[in-house]
Design a binder for these strands. Structure first.
Lengths: 196, 196
DNA sequence: GCTAAAAGCGACTTGATGTTGCTTTTAGTG
DNA sequence: CACTAAAAGCAACATCAAGTCGCTTTTAGC
């Protein structure tokens, strides 16, 4: 019996090739037109390999996405809420504009009601993501820049319109739009009490 | 040769049954799992009928959606921007929470990048929709309630976060959330100059 | 009631999806 | 370095849904 597999061995290479091909195919054709055979061909691998190791589209994509899920998203800390929110939304939209990420996002929107695993993963992702991003709001509160508010809702207020443009309305997201959105949200936030 | 078809004739009945079945199937199974045969069975019709009259999933859904597109969306006019925006977003979300509408919206998100017809229809829909909804903002401006701003962006600011909750994050959209969002946007809008 | 169009029907073709048994390659062990 | 078990390659096969075709039956409009 063979021991633990090597990180750079054939299995690992095949796995990486297939997962990467899966995301590329998803971006090119969309979930509805994704075939395991197509992924196998793109990865330069025989389709039985894909069938035996993953079996279904769902399992394959789940694996492909999770393999990338730990990508590092930096939390800005400029000492100014405006600059932090602007960095945050810009990064989020830049990321969402990537073909791979956008394809995953669109697939998640399409599948969430029909696939419990997708829904669960999605909820978990956003719960964590909104909480982490909310840190910049919490910092602003403890800095005394704004009065206490729900950090999550502030994040939703700044990225919601931009996300909607990219995914739903298809309108262009310009730097001016982001700045205007952030400024509108900022002037809508409660001012801190003068004392303390 | 037969003349113009009757509104209540067999053809019209079959057409209505199929289009309605198409939306129902879309809501139940999602676009990726939609089959013309399934629609035909649900409509109590033979599949050749569907194939001969529509031919493809896309054509069928396009027809089904357009047949409902002229549904009437009332523009509120309460004399107060806050009340108008609240009515508007509440109606939009109530509508989007309908299984049929939500299924269509999710499908549009999934298909837009891969299907030019979907993208075009979608853009046209949103251009019109945002312009029409923007009327409540224009009224508030001419009423002197707020200083001039881009009406479209105000609409996007209020419905963006709610749409994102329904379609993307899956978080619940409560009346309180809508009110908080509208209030945030309102206090972020420029105040009118005192003169005139 | 006559007729052309539309719907129904089942058989058929086709192509994609997924499976199986077997061979070949590769990675890890003694 | 040779041996072995796992993983990948391969081709043939089974399955099944998608879509087509020729024909019959029904129905709407004259």
């Amino acid at each position: 019996m063979a021991g633990a597999p090597r990180p750079g061995g054939r299995s690992a290479k095949v796995r990486a090739a297939v997962l990467s091909a899966a995301l590329a195919e998803l971006a090119e054709s969309g979930y509805h037109a994704l075939s395991l055979d197509g992924v196998a061909r793109r990865a330069g691998v025989h389709k039985t390999t894909v069938y035996r190791r993953w079996g279904t589209r769902e399992a394959l994509l789940f694996d492909a996405i999770n393999a990338r899920a730990d990508e590092y998203v930096p939390i800005p800390d400029n000492g100014s809420l405006r600059a932090d929110l602007l960095d945050l939304t810009r990064d989020a939209i830049t990321n969402l504009s990537t073909p791979h990420v956008q394809a995953v996002a669109r697939s998640a929107v399409a599948l969430a009601p029909y696939d419990a695993a997708v829904a669960t993963t999605n909820t978990a992702f956003w719960t964590e993501r909104l909480a982490v991003d909310g840190i910049v709001v919490e910092r602003a509160i403890s800095r005394g820049e704004i009065a206490p508010t729900d950090p999550t809702e502030v994040i939703e207020a700044v990225i919601g319109p931009a996300y909607m443009r990219v995914l739903v309305t298809g309108r262009p997201v310009t730097e001016e739009f982001l700045a205007a959105t952030v400024d509108r949200v900022l002037s809508g936030l409660p001012k801190p009490a003068k004392d303390v």
